[in-house]
Design a protein around this nucleic acid. Structure first.
Lengths: 256, 256
DNA sequence: CGGAACGTTGATGTATCTCAAGTGGGGTGG
DNA sequence: CCACCCCACTTGAGATACATCAACGTTCCG
């Protein structure tokens, strides 16, 4: 066992951070973190700033020299076509961090907020230092990056081979699992601060069709979605409709 | 400058490998490799075996403890739905290697050949040793993995937001660039050992519609595709149709 | 010569898109 | 506190890209 020299107040801080810092909460699912690891992650999460909805953090074509960590709200990676059509390729929910390990280069997509967000900008050097000194964090981030890639493949399957209802059902199953992993689901409900327009750009459908599909899911008694809150009324039914197999998220051992 | 102790024959082997080993050829685009790096990569490429078309190398649910390197032919990653529908999420063309850095875990997709292939299986320990002793290789593989992820995002955009013609055009632009990067394009032609069925499972279309879309591309004088050989007749036109921006492949400095 | 796999074509069906016109709620200014 | 406005959501009608089904052609290989 590692002997840590925590003072009582520090230990309390640590416990607090464990509960409230979504990054720590997320990475603890991927690796066993020491108090010192958690302290380092807490250090990464300082200097936060809040960002308005629909604000770009990084734009396609720019060179990125920092990692961004989302502490609250929804952000996303997206690409634009010349005619303005948008494809969202990733959600960044609380606890998600992007571009830690990237060899700096020109971004070929943008990163922007969907809702108002609390964000921390982690300078590249700080991120590299922390990763270098904390092998457990490095390992957890590596796993996290594999999960991101698996998620991308799952989205490709979703858009390429599933019907509108199945796509939305699958997305909601995934989000529910991810939000639960950072403690943001209560009674099968969580904040989903997305417009139907955003959902359409995520799953490759028009917002009108998203609207009709949502109504169908509601009529089947699977979900409610009102006031930016999604409630899964019938988790088993939703998973069955989507053929949702959560293994790719590496959250298998989640407490219910 | 590094002093290498090559004998003349070794140097000739090195030059030969540089030209014929697609892995070396590919990674040299991402990092400057020493003769010793190239020798290590050549070592990874030994013990090859040929594989029939439509053969799985790894199946979903299995645990993978080796990297696979494709030296000739086309392989792919794919996922299946319970009704048999397939979504291809990645092509593995000569020089592509998969799962080097993976934390061993349950595969959530399969890897299989599309054509007959020449494949090398690189045991996990060997791969880790080589990466550990050759920082340039490690760096090149890291970049390669970022390219793979960017490609996945591009495919998502392709399926989610482009028409059938644009999807196929974009895929062909990408493949042309990747095949050129390993020296397999001559006069804008290269071997494309895929059925229209495979293409459909790649871009989320039925094979019938792939057929009709290919005819349209042919009638526009953009391509020919006969006997498993694709020729791009009008590269600029094809790129324009697809809005193809090759930056994500990190092959910008390709010789024409 | 025969069969299998792939490619082609036609006819018909349907999921989803586009256009267009409302409805509703939450914030803001008067 | 009300009126207004904006934005998101909703609904309908009509268009279309793509899927499905089914038949036939072609090539290649044993």
């Amino acid at each position: 066992m590692t002997v840590t020299r925590d003072h009582p107040t520090e230990r309390m801080d640590d416990e607090l951070a464990r509960d409230t810092n979504p990054l720590i909460r997320k990475l603890e699912r991927y690796a066993v973190l020491s108090a010192s690891d958690r302290a380092a992650l807490a250090r990464m999460s300082t200097g936060t700033f809040s960002v308005e909805p629909s604000t770009d953090l990084v734009r396609e074509g720019e060179i990125l020299d920092a990692a961004y960590l989302v502490l609250s709200g929804f952000a996303c990676r997206y690409k634009l076509r010349s005619d303005g059509a948008r494809q969202i390729t990733n959600y960044l929910v609380p606890g998600d961090i992007c571009e830690v390990d990237t060899v700096p280069g020109v971004m070929n997509h943008s990163i922007g907020t969907l809702s108002s967000c609390l964000v921390a900008r982690v300078p590249r050097e700080l991120a590299l230092d922390i990763v270098g000194e904390h092998p457990a964090i490095a390992r957890a981030l590596r796993i996290s990056s594999h999960v991101d890639e698996a998620t991308l493949r799952e989205w490709l399957m979703n858009i390429g081979r599933r019907s509108a209802e199945e796509r939305i059902a699958h997305l909601f199953c995934e989000l529910s699992t991810r939000m639960r992993a950072v403690g943001l689901v209560q009674n099968e409900s969580f904040k989903l601060p997305l417009t139907q327009f955003d959902l359409g750009d995520t799953i490759g459908l028009s917002y009108v069709h998203v609207n009709r599909t949502l109504q169908s899911l509601r009529q089947q008694g699977l979900i409610t979605l009102r006031g930016r809150t999604l409630t899964v009324l019938d988790p088993a039914g939703l998973r069955a409709l989507a053929e949702f197999k959560p293994g790719y998220l590496h959250c298998g051992d989640l407490p219910v």
